[in-house]
Amino acid sequence: MSKKVMAAAGVLVSALALSLSTAGSANAADGFTVVRGCGTTGAYGDMSATNWHGPDATIPIKFTLTDTVGDGNSVRIRLVSKDVWGKIHYWPWRTNSQGRGKTSTWNTTASHQNGLFDIGIQVARVNSDGTTKNHCTDW
Rank of each mutant, 00 (worst) to 15 (best):
T33G: 02
T58P: 03
G72L: 06
H89L: 01
G72P: 04
D56G: 11
G99R: 02
Q113L: 10
N134R: 01
T22N: 08
T137I: 15
D67H: 09
A17M: 12
G42A: 12
S2G: 14
K102L: 08
R125G: 07
L116P: 04
R78W: 12
I121W: 12
G24A: 11
T109L: 02
M1D: 09
H89F: 01
G31T: 01
S74K: 15
Y44W: 14
A26S: 15
P55E: 05
N96W: 09
W91G: 09
N114S: 12
G24L: 12
T103W: 06
N27V: 03
M6R: 12
A23E: 05
G101P: 01
K82N: 14
D118H: 05
F32Q: 11
K82T: 08
N127Q: 09
G39V: 05
G115Y: 02
D129R: 02
V123R: 03
G10P: 04
G54D: 04
G72D: 06
I121P: 11
I77T: 10
T108A: 07
S104M: 13
D71S: 08
G115K: 01
S19V: 00
T68E: 12
A49K: 00
G42H: 11
N73I: 03
S21R: 14
T108G: 07
L116D: 03
R125Y: 01
D46H: 13
